[in-house]
Design a protein around this nucleic acid. Structure first.
Lengths: 239, 239
DNA sequence: GGCGCCCGTCTTGTCGACAACGAATATACA
DNA sequence: TGTATATTCGTTGTCGACAAGACGGGCGCC
């Protein structure tokens, strides 16, 4: 992280011109999605200035980009905060997520080209690998990439963009509410992913729709279970 | 979102602090959508500097915002251009537009509250007014606002955001390909809008879906007709 | 003792300037 | 004359600095 106090030598590691905003954008995006920065917490521009070793200008531009993606919220004249996670938005989120699961999988089944199945299968293999290693973080991330690849194979940028945003938000939700996966759920995902691949390979739109909807229902139920799980420990306390 | 319409009189001699980026953003967005700036044309930052009487910093931030909305494209180290209109993207656009018409109208029928119908009806009245005046530009714009209001009544920010983006792109398309409206089409829109309002008022989701789909088909056909209209004048030229 | 105002400080929005990078042009060479 | 290279020019990405609001503390007033 903090690796530069003297830059007298023409170091090759000097970030190239134009990489400033993208670096800050990518780094902050990852940290926001991984909850390294807590939702709702304020973002200090000058702190980022020192951390990234660059001026406020590129950092501000990166924040504007993040605001456009809904990952941060800008309060005029009062700074920017990491987008909070609002439980009240969950029903809308579920609605849109399910619809995007369906339409992107349908489109992938309709429009996929031969080369794209290999890439999707690679993600599926990585997911299986993460499951075997019980690496939950990797599972969440690979799951997102898996579906994003399907969306891209569907060749509709409007859907793909919204879907990736929803998938990222889902990443944040899972990390936020995650306590421990049941062991059987990831395996169910694995099978459902296989079915999706099969439907896409067979160019069977109706089947792709069915399995996508089932998959979405599964995920929605899982998140709902996390969100609404009963964590009370004082419910039966004798008073 | 915020409607601080302090009138657009040219005597805005004193822009307040914080209004810079939003002013530039709103102005450029309008001009891009109204094709005042041609698709694909380069945007000169210094020219905007002189035009808006402000430094490059707020202008660049506005451009970053516009890039996030897909209205401009940024070429690294080589400037930004107004997003071109690509005919090859039209099928995807039609697909997404139709779906958003349907889901937002459905949601509006399901979730609308009493006060919101009045706002929607106001847009419809403005649309009728524009039709009577044969003000095509106003029709296009009011039509967008009409459907955006319905989407907001549906209370799903994900859909509303994508839908508004699609509607804006549709505005650009209509202006781009528009030659002259048939006189009967706007009237058909008027009736279909009335049906949508009725379905939403009756909270009839299925009916809202039907009429939204019909409306979308109508619009898609219209744009397709514009795009693919035969403008050849040398087809029958004796050679 | 509580409440509201004034003031200092911190942060943000904006500015003008500089340097790197691309494009266009001029130049040298085959 | 055509091609490859060096140079100039314009533009973009970044920087440090300045000033307008917002927040917090101290003070006076009721």
């Amino acid at each position: 992280m903090n690796d530069q106090t003297s830059d007298a030598a023409p170091d090759a590691s000097r970030p190239k011109r134009g990489s400033g905003v993208s670096t800050v954008h990518a780094t902050l995006k990852r940290e926001i999605l991984e909850l390294t920065i807590a939702p709702g917490s304020a973002i200090d521009e000058v702190a980022l200035t020192e951390r990234f070793g660059m001026s406020r200008t590129p950092i501000r531009e990166a924040l504007v980009k993040l605001a456009g993606e809904g990952l941060v919220v800008t309060l005029p004249n009062r700074g920017t905060v990491v987008a909070p996670i609002d439980v009240l938005d969950l029903p809308q989120f579920f609605d849109a997520l399910t619809l995007m699961y369906r339409v992107t999988t349908r489109l992938a089944a309709a429009h996929r080209r031969d080369g794209e199945l290999a890439g999707i299968r690679a993600h599926q293999a990585a997911y299986a690998d993460a499951v075997s290693k019980r690496d939950v973080a990797a599972m969440i991330e690979v799951n997102r990439d898996f579906h994003a690849a399907i969306a891209r194979a569907g060749r509709n940028g409007y859907y793909a963009e919204l879907f990736e945003r929803l998938l990222d938000e889902g990443r944040r939700l899972l990390r936020y509410y995650y306590s421990s996966f049941d062991d059987d759920l990831p395996l169910a995902f694995l099978d459902e992913h296989e079915e999706m691949i099969a439907a896409i390979e067979a160019r069977d739109v109706a089947r792709a729709d069915r399995v996508a909807k089932a998959h979405a229902d599964q995920i929605v139920r899982q998140i709902q279970a996390y969100v609404s799980r009963d964590t009370r420990i004082n419910a039966d306390l004798p008073l």
